[in-house]
Write a protein that binds this DNA or RNA. Structure first.
Lengths: 204, 204
DNA sequence: GTCTATACGCCGATAGAC
DNA sequence: GTCTATCGGCGTATAGAC
């Protein structure tokens, strides 16, 4: 998963620069989703990430915003790759959507912070110049999938934006309640039922 | 709407203390939903509310958090009263839900900042001691309505929490997209369709 | 009781010694 | 290139003059 860099020929307990950068992002992800961007200081991030002190953070990122920005693009890129993969492996939009739902639910169980970041944070509040979540590649691609389903007469609703509201309204609200603890069981427990309901809102 | 206080016998251009407090809350509402709580300074609130300077704010509220708290309870109380009224006027849960949807959509058109506050802001990020939105009276009451509908066999789903996810997932996601501009028409335009879909997710 | 002037703390960011 | 020490600014909050 983690590619070996050429510089680390010798075995070393010390972390490489990339590993540390990664740790910083993970720490930031945890803290931002837990307390919010503005309640998280660079000292907090330094402590949790294992970087010696907050000044050392500037060896890895230009400033606090850049940490958030790197996090955002990292998550978006990862999603985008996954969606590409799903589109490649499936032809029908119903199958593609089913796999996206599966991904969303698995992320909620296995990487809840990522889902919290996507569903709970207002990214534009601390990254005002960044494009809105719904305009990023993965979500554009999801809208395309819905559009394709409408053209193929798999999906009934007139426009893809509204199909998104119905379908992902059900999905995302369920996941939000799981993440907040209002629904007690793991996401996986709710997946099939939620898929059925969500799909029924848009299927022809 | 605005009750006359006993102290203002004479006609006056000056605003009463209550009017000013109200203006402060409205200014804070606008700014918080626009830029976020942490990007809003007391100077911003003073300017927009017509209070002379930021120091004067402390004549009305103990501190910045208290402004946010007052805003939160004001909105929650208003909602709670409306829900009580809806429950009094209707017997069937389908009718009650229909009226709540109508209220949600009307607020989105007529008082979008209130809906933005409810749907877009993470209140607990700046009011960590306040109870979560889903645990406030109006939302408890909505869960009771859903529970009643399940017992009366109007609604199919097993538990009310999940019925909430499905039904209000559709509603809230649609309103969110309207507020963010992804759906271009006024909320009223989408109300009937959205209600039909949302109700279909839980009706027996 | 209104407003100016200011105190104070926190945190992001930097400089510079070693 | 690591870490200490510190700067500077913003924004909340207060004190005190009139």
């Amino acid at each position: 998963m983690q590619p070996e860099t050429e510089t680390t020929k010798e075995v070393s307990i010390e972390k490489t620069k990339e590993e540390l950068s990664n740790d910083i992002l993970l720490a930031a992800l945890k803290l931002f989703t837990e307390k919010g961007y503005f309640n998280t200081s660079l000292v907090d991030i330094a402590e949790l990430s294992g970087v010696k002190n907050s000044a050392a953070l500037y060896k890895h990122f230009k400033n606090k915003q850049e940490i958030a920005r790197a996090l955002y693009t990292w998550i978006i890129d990862r999603l985008s790759v996954s969606i590409d993969d799903i589109r490649r492996r499936n032809r029908k939009s119903s199958e593609q959507l089913r796999e996206i739902v599966d991904l969303w639910f698995r992320l909620t169980d296995d990487a809840p912070d990522i889902m919290r970041f996507l569903l709970l944070l207002n990214v534009n509040e601390f990254l005002p110049d960044e494009i809105k979540l719904m305009e990023t590649p993965p979500f554009i691609k999801i809208l395309r999938i819905l559009h394709g389903g409408i053209k193929a007469e798999e999906i009934k609703t007139v426009d893809s934006q509204r199909a998104y509201c119905y379908f992902f309204g059900v999905i995302e609200n369920t996941l939000t309640q799981i993440l907040s603890g209002a629904l007690k069981k793991p996401a996986d427990f709710y997946q099939n039922d939620t898929w059925e309901i969500a799909w029924s809102t848009i299927s022809k």
